[in-house]
Design a protein around this nucleic acid. Structure first.
Lengths: 182, 182
DNA sequence: CCTAGCTGTCGATAATTCTAAACATCCGGG
DNA sequence: CCCGGATGTTTAGAATTATCGACAGCTAGG
């Protein structure tokens, strides 16, 4: 659960071809500290870690995003998308089995009158989408609006939100959210 | 230059309606520490900040991407999407003006024979998309495949990649990438 | 073999972070 | 008016982090 700051720092430092002393010089800390941090014998203060990353250079966000590559499928046939919807709402998930995805990409279909649920949704992250076909009523915080083909939305997911198809024809959307909800 | 960890923490904590003591309880630290951190009188250790964010909850990466914006547009008419393409490739960006977005959502159109460029693209992050209409040839790393409507892709953007419309009809895609490229 | 220069690790100590408990406000109810 | 319960702040001292200097290992060159 806890982040292996030491291993991550060591890996990045070596990737940049820097010795502990060289990075220490650039960052304005001592080589000993870097040694201790990399061995996870101390948990550096945010200000120290910031200094270290400034010497690399790399942002805090990048550091904690931790982006490692792997050999996983790239292409997905329509039938390979994983269905996770219900009740007139079809949510078809791209790259469902991919470990440590950073996003959830969904091909969504709302039957007439279908909606995401009685309760407003509320979770952390951001989500956005484009309407392909039909109409969808999007409610976010207090605001509500009906979007048609080519129209789009983007909001913080911690605002209470809901989707509903107010029309008679099915509605099709492509949406994306981060961090992944599914 | 340095990050205002205190202000950021306070803002996020209040956004979640938590008191210092309540967050302290959830995070397993003392309320006093939270007070000190929020006043920037100490720079918390990474492990302490991690505990605090676990109590919110929020990831370190999210914390440092600084997502403190709220009063921004949610809905976008088709005409409000910002065109950033060229040469037969139309890339229409959702929420272009939004500060500190975590994703780039694009409504893309490729004219027949159009492609993303001579050079393969290569950048940090992940990207994914769903084909709405027409056909697109997606090349990622060594692999290449033609995708049609309803088919999808998801890959690490640091693998060299390219998109090309091999057909005679225009191709329409909705794609998303993180971190934002535009 | 020995030195010079690099590497990372370690121990003692200085500096900073973190805790625990007290303190100062503020607000609503009795 | 005062109390209970909430808030955030402060302080002394415990715990942890950061520094400085020493150390051992390795490699290249003389």
């Amino acid at each position: 659960m806890s982040i292996d700051v030491g291993a991550r720092l060591r890996s990045i430092r070596q990737m940049c071809g820097l010795s502990q002393r060289e990075l220490a010089r650039r960052a304005g800390v001592t080589n000993g500290l870097i040694s201790l941090v990399e061995m996870n014998r101390v948990s550096p203060s945010v200000s120290s870690l910031k200094k270290l990353l400034d010497g690399i250079p790399m942002s805090m966000a990048e550091f904690f995003t931790g982006d490692l590559n792997q050999q996983v499928p790239v292409f997905y046939a329509a039938t390979e998308l994983v269905e996770i919807g219900n009740d007139g709402v079809s949510l078809r998930l791209v790259a469902a089995q991919r470990a440590n995805r950073q996003m959830t990409l969904l091909h969504e279909r709302y039957a007439p009158d279908a909606q995401t649920g009685e309760e407003m949704l509320e979770h952390r992250g951001e989500e956005c989408g484009v309407v392909i076909r039909g109409k969808i009523e999007v409610t976010v915080g207090g605001a509500s609006r009906v979007l048609g083909p080519g129209e789009a939305y983007y909001f913080n997911s911690n605002l209470p939100h809901r989707f509903k198809n107010p029309g008679r024809e099915p509605c099709e959307i492509v949406s994306c959210s981060t961090p992944p909800s599914f």
